[in-house]
């Protein structure tokens, strides 16, 4: 229904007039509105979304924690004092003190471990997301834009990777590494996780490449690289960003799961997943050693999911 467009977009600029005879009359209307890109419109929407504000504050907090853990605690996550093992209960009154959240079975400060554990989770989450976005966008764009055999080949490849169960695959891949650093985990998850982005990117590119503005650029004689970079990528980016931010929470959960299963980061690394695994053994005696790192994982995953949701609403209102 043609009338509907009016509700969604600013339609007319009342000041603009062009007279019938083609003599140009420069507008004398109200003050001209500012240039507004679609990105700035999205930002305008985001700032008013409480979901976005809450999740953004949490994410900033987690980022700061992962970059400068020293700001939050003076205790070291590795200092084990077996004498404290028996005093393991949290002292809820001692805010931010090493004994605030109690000690684990080896007498290490749980608060310190929670603070230092953020780095592993956030690095893996952000690292995997960046890696899959680059790989997925590249493969999806090539497949979507060139079509034909290229598309058939890349799409089948995507299907093959999609057929591997994500966690099981990661388990197998990581098992073959002895020294599992953060980077190894990122590579393993990215190796298996790019398919989702690739599919979204391919779909977006196929739609966009038929748009008249792409045809117009071709008609002007634009090169393929110009069309891809100037026209297709900026328009395909919105759905890709949406999928990527929502997936980020999933990667953090995946890292925690793998660490819990003992194939994530090595035993010496400080990570929430590892702590949950160790806490499980004391479930009866000291449940907080399990619960506190689990809650941290949940809060982090939830923050990123909420963030992704808010971004999706702002970038693509139709998806709601």
């Amino acid at each position: 229904m043609p009338d509907k467009t009016v509700e969604k977009k600013v339609e007319a600029l009342p000041g603009d007039t062009a007279s019938t005879a083609g003599v140009v009359v420069t507008d004398a209307g109200p003050a001209p509105e500012k240039a507004r890109s679609l990105w700035s419109d999205a930002w305008h929407d985001l700032r008013r979304n409480p979901l976005f504000l809450i999740s953004a504050v949490l994410i900033v907090f987690l980022l700061v924690m992962s970059i400068w853990p020293g700001l939050f605690t003076s205790a070291s996550p590795r200092d084990a004092d077996l004498a404290k093992h028996y005093l393991g209960k949290p002292n809820w009154g001692h805010f931010f003190a090493p004994d605030w959240l109690g000690y684990d079975v080896q007498g290490r400060s749980i608060y310190a471990r929670v603070v230092y554990g953020a780095r592993a989770s956030i690095t893996v989450g952000v690292g995997v997301t960046i890696a899959v976005t680059i790989i997925g966008t590249f493969i999806g764009m090539i497949a979507g834009y060139f079509g034909g055999w290229t598309d058939t080949l890349l799409s089948r490849l995507t299907d093959i990777f999609l057929g591997i169960p994500f966690l099981l695959g990661a388990l197998v891949v990581l098992n073959s590494f002895d020294n599992r650093t953060v980077w190894v985990v990122i590579m393993a998850l990215a190796f298996l996780g790019w398919t989702q982005i690739a599919r979204v990117a391919r779909g977006a590119v196929i739609t966009i490449k038929q748009a008249d503005y792409v045809v117009a650029a071709k008609a002007l004689g634009a090169s393929t690289s110009r069309i891809l970079v100037r026209h297709i990528l900026p328009n395909a980016l919105a759905p890709i960003i949406v999928v990527a931010t929502i997936a980020l929470g999933g990667y953090i959960a995946a890292e925690a799961t793998l660490s819990f299963l003992g194939v994530g980061l090595g035993d010496t690394a400080v990570s929430w997943g590892g702590d949950v695994a160790r806490g499980r053994e004391q479930l009866r005696i000291a449940p907080h050693t399990l619960i506190i790192p689990s809650v941290m994982v949940s809060i982090t995953v939830l923050s990123f999911l909420m963030f992704g949701d808010a971004v999706r609403n702002a970038l693509d209102p139709k998806l709601r």
Partner: peptide, 28 residues
């Protein structure tokens, strides 16, 4: 050159008017 039917899809929504009209000069 060509003028298209649908003015809503024939202009790249992520480019400014200046970039859209200036693109022919970038290409030639």
């Amino acid at each position: 050159q060509m003028v298209f039917q649908d003015p809503y899809t024939s202009l790249n929504p992520r480019m400014t008017v200046g970039d859209i009209i200036g693109e022919p000069f970038d290409i030639h």
